[in-house]
Write a protein that binds this DNA or RNA. Structure first.
Lengths: 192, 192
DNA sequence: CATTGTAAAATGAACGTTCATTCATTTTAT
DNA sequence: ATAAAATGAATGAACGTTCATTTTACAATG
């Protein structure tokens, strides 16, 4: 045990503060001083853990992306059915986006701006291999459309980010029914 | 005719410069001085046309969104077939995104960050009415899934932005074949 | 157990830079 | 000659980053 009530690592607090501030104000309006204040540390302390603001953003991105990928394949065991396997992964991803809203919004923002180094972006993509493998298996069996994985991703995973954005802006509430409908739409779009 | 070779209005030049700079560096790294330089005017001149940087961004957003909506319904005439009508609009939108790449990338960035006022966002959405009407018609006839228009948008229009982003980052080339496949995937996802 | 020595961690004022914005002046158009 | 348009140096605020100083953590010592 340590001294302060909720001391759990300043680095983690900084990561959380960064996500929250970038979500609510955007990268351009998330100054280091505010991030520090929200994390409950002083401005200078950030530089014990991160080299620069760019480094901070990149590392937060990688950390969140890693958590996302880990969620995607939680309890994933290949069965014989491509559809079963896809359903498993898709719902894992949907669960992540609906439960870790802050993290998911942060990723959606990063993926659509030049905020992140191309190198970090590549690195963040690496962990999605099992999903690509599954798609190839489905294509080999003639179940899934013989198109680029980018198209498959665009029509199955990417739409969830849109729904989340709309929900966050108060236009739309995502009910369990709609999650199920969304899954069916995803599956229908990529199958032959 | 005016004096300079390519003088066509400084306001238009400023809009173009803003789009280009925000695309390549993000809002946070698009200072007014650079925008002015790229537009070939002096920094102070911006303030003859726009009240502030926020106003500049909002108005560029609205202008691009208006051009987008106009494209979406170019030559659109309702037929008796929901599928025909949808195909028309979808391809109009895809054409816009593939031909006006800069404008489309700018919109994708705006739609995923807190860069734009919620008011301007609402305003930009207004012109999409005919598409929503078409969807309602399709739902009334039992052709289109009875789900929120947000879901329909997420699975038909939003994915195009992802493909464009990937193409722009050099991961992927969008061939005419893939556009056709993308259309089929969109249609399959929203029909019953 | 209390005291002390020491290195790591944290601080926040200060620094230099960059930014959005203004405005006295100049240029352009009529 | 006059008004509108454009300029770009000046301004003050805000930013990312640094660093001299203070605080904390804790092992060694008596």
């Amino acid at each position: 045990m340590s001294t302060t009530p909720k001391s759990k690592g300043k680095q983690a607090a900084l990561v959380r503060a960064t996500i929250s501030l970038v979500n609510n104000s955007g990268f351009h309006a998330a100054p280091m001083a505010k991030i520090a204040a929200l994390a409950g540390v002083s401005a200078g302390t950030i530089y014990r853990y991160f080299e620069s603001k760019q480094d901070l953003i990149n590392r937060v991105y990688l950390e969140v992306k890693a958590a996302f990928s880990a969620s995607a394949f939680r309890d994933y065991v290949e069965t014989d059915s491509v559809e079963e396997d896809f359903k498993q992964i898709w719902h894992n991803i949907a669960d992540f986006k609906l439960r870790q809203v802050e993290e998911a919004l942060f990723l959606s923002q990063c993926d659509n701006t030049p905020m992140i180094d191309e190198a970090s972006r590549q690195e963040g993509l690496r962990h999605l291999r099992p999903l690509l493998d599954l798609w190839e298996r489905g294509q080999a069996r003639g179940i899934i459309r013989p198109v680029s994985p980018y198209l498959l991703y665009a029509y199955t995973i990417y739409p969830i980010a849109f729904l989340l954005n709309m929900q966050e802006r108060g236009h739309h509430d995502i009910t369990p029914d709609q999650v199920e409908a969304a899954y069916q739409m995803a599956w229908n779009s990529i199958t032959i």
